[in-house]
Design a protein around this nucleic acid. Structure first.
Lengths: 128, 128
DNA sequence: TTGACATTTTGACAATCATCGAAATGAAAA
DNA sequence: TTTTCATTTCGATGATTGTCAAAATGTCAA
């Protein structure tokens, strides 16, 4: 949609971005609903800095964008996503949606509300 | 087609397999025509052992199979390819086919006949 | 059987990657 | 302003990766 041609390098970057299980988990979550870093962190159970770094990979690959909202930064799937990225995302969402891990993640999505979050020991800090 | 469910691990392995430019080049070639290792080597201009290792990645990911033919081993796209692999391959073939590098590779395909090949210095050996 | 040669395996190396904890940044609330 | 806390950046570490050269394997042909 946005760009006529993605370079070979860029197209490979897109594939690399989705070749990591935790990034697939994040994408599947964001396809359901925009989330902030601390919500994603609480669902995936990884270090905040790890989540942040995965988000930056997905952002550079053209899958997601971030938006300030008060204290938080929301991440969501790009509105104007490239055709190629969109095709990749379609394959992911079609073939990964039955994965037990991803179903569990999605079930966690409502618990992981930024206003309820009291994350004991994530990055050694509270998150509320 | 062949298997009902691929594990998450296996599906990630498939994506990793196509996240490498030289493996994309090999897949695009094999979608055109089955080829032996020395033919692929001559087109891509990499070390034989490198090609062999890429082929083994693509084979383990379920994209290609090998078949003995006399002195050579031909590689080709699986006949009974998994739906998921097939969907990934469709995206690749749709969005990479305009890549200058891949067009050049395809143009080389007829020159790279195993009976004509005199590869000066590939792995320090002739290949004929 | 021996020699030629296509292919795979092994070992080494530099580069990239996923992860964590700690420190830095930045913005909102007290 | 100072404190709080969400997020990013930095530095370190162990694991994986793409590549080559050399050695090993296997097979056809003389």
């Amino acid at each position: 949609m946005s760009k006529r041609f993605l370079s070979m390098r860029k197209k490979i970057e897109v594939l690399k971005a989705v070749s990591e299980p935790n990034r697939i988990r994040i994408l599947m979550l964001l396809m359901k609903k925009p989330l902030c870093v601390c919500e994603i962190t609480s669902i995936l159970g990884l270090n905040t800095s790890t989540i942040s770094s995965h988000l930056s990979v997905l952002k550079n690959a053209g899958f997601i964008i971030d938006e300030k909202e008060g204290k938080w930064i929301n991440y969501k799937i790009c509105d104007e996503i490239d055709d190629y990225n969109s095709a990749v995302l379609d394959v992911i969402s079609k073939y990964f949606s039955n994965e037990p891990q991803l179903i569990k993640d999605l079930a966690e999505i409502e618990n992981a509300n930024r206003y309820n979050l009291i994350q004991i020991e994530t990055n050694g800090k509270r998150c509320k």
